[in-house]
Amino acid sequence: MTDRSGFTDYVEEHSDRLLRTAYLLTRDWGRAEDLLQTALAKAWIVWGRVSDDPAPYVYRIMTNTHASWWRRRWRGEVPTAALPEHAGPDPAAAFDDRDSMWTALAALSPRQRAVIVLHYFEALPLTRVAEILGCSHSSVKTQQRRALARLRIDPALRALKEVG
């Protein structure tokens, strides 16, 4: 008999965060709830095996399930060909830029989106992301590089700001 005594506590403690991750994958709160419950239901079944560290398992199920639901899916929210560029640090422009990023995020493949969400939202190191996605570190880095290019993100900008 599998001991599932810690399952409810785990869900209570972590599921808000997991729901946010699911939302970033699906872009719809209803679908995010479906996706999260799918992952949690599968985790419940094998709780005896994964209860020590359920997070990687839950992330893996969420990313794989999302990819199998939608594969490379567009939802009519394709980024514009020319994204707005701004010369100065206009606060309003920052919101526009984030809107553009959000729109561009929708056009990423499920794999690229998973890398972005797990690394930049969940703050997981790329080695951990690779374990979750079941691929090599170099493959994750390739996905990350392509995704950042599509999101118009320059990884060097943070370093420059920190130095400055």
Binding site: L24, D97, V117, Y120, D154
Partner: peptide, 13 residues
């Protein structure tokens, strides 16, 4: 031109 840094991405998410 690249316009944003990774921090903006995290903030947006």
């Amino acid at each position: 031109t690249m316009a944003h840094g990774p921090d903006e991405l995290t903030i947006m998410l």
